[in-house]
Computed example of a mutant assay.
Amino acid sequence: MSSLIGEELDPVAEESLAIIEEVGRDKYALTEKERRAEFLLKFHPTMIKLILDYEKVENTKTSSLSQDDISNAYGHAKREHGRELYTDVTANTVVLKHKKAAIYSLYKQLSEILHIVINSINDAHSKKIAELMFIKGHRHSYVSSYLSKGYSSDLYAIPLGTFTYKRINAIKEVASSLEVLGILDLIQKNEGTGRCKKQQYRIDLEEWSAYEE
């Protein structure tokens, strides 16, 4: 179901949407920049997984493409097949390798920034919600249930309505910090077709290259 706070699938999220409808959407509405921040936050657990997967592969593989490998592969393709197609395959492999490294660098630095920003959230409940949902990747229902019990003086039990407000507050606070850092400029509207249309935003690698300069 589409909502002002993004795509949610579990029953508790549906109930949160009902609360928003009852209280009034204006109170919970996200600006365009806050939606960009929400996209980045919701993608962050996947980003963390991809970072760890990449590092695991890099740490365990026994060989990599060196300049000698590239030259040998180029010469072998020319000798055996006599067609440029095979040398193009080698070139594409090198490009893909460098692109993966660039994406890893992007995700790694964005993740470090998000960890710092989330840890800087002032409200204890909003911070815990952001940690559980946007770092550890727990579902809406698990986090709302966790916070409905209360575990300490600063994390007293809160009802679903308060949880919904605190979650939105976390997104807004993170968005404010990311805007100051210029990170939200990296999140672009997805103008793709077909399956790409299902994802409203994307991270622009070219914008990141300009950001780093």
Rank of each mutant, 00 (worst) to 15 (best):
H115I: 10
H125V: 10
G6H: 02
T60Y: 08
L41F: 12
D53L: 13
S176F: 06
T87F: 12
L186F: 02
E15L: 14
S63T: 15
S120M: 00
P11M: 12
L114D: 00
V23L: 11
D185F: 07
W208D: 01
Y142E: 03
E80L: 04
P159W: 09
S120A: 12
K99T: 12
S3T: 13
A73V: 01
G194V: 11
T62V: 05
T164F: 02
S105D: 13
H81S: 10
L9W: 12
L186H: 04
Q188A: 13
S152N: 06
A13M: 03
D26Y: 03
D123F: 03
L41D: 02
R139N: 14
K127T: 00
W208Q: 00
S120H: 02
D10G: 05
E15I: 08
F134A: 03
H115A: 09
Y201P: 00
L4V: 11
E191T: 15
I51Y: 11
K108W: 14
N190Q: 12
E80D: 04
L205N: 04
Q67L: 11
E80S: 08
H44Q: 09
K198A: 12
I187M: 07
S120D: 15
I113E: 00
P159I: 07
G150Y: 07
T60R: 14
T31D: 08
R139C: 04
C196P: 07
T193N: 13
E14F: 09
R25E: 10
A124H: 01
Y165T: 13
N190M: 09
R139M: 11
A170G: 01
N59A: 15
A73C: 03
L106N: 00
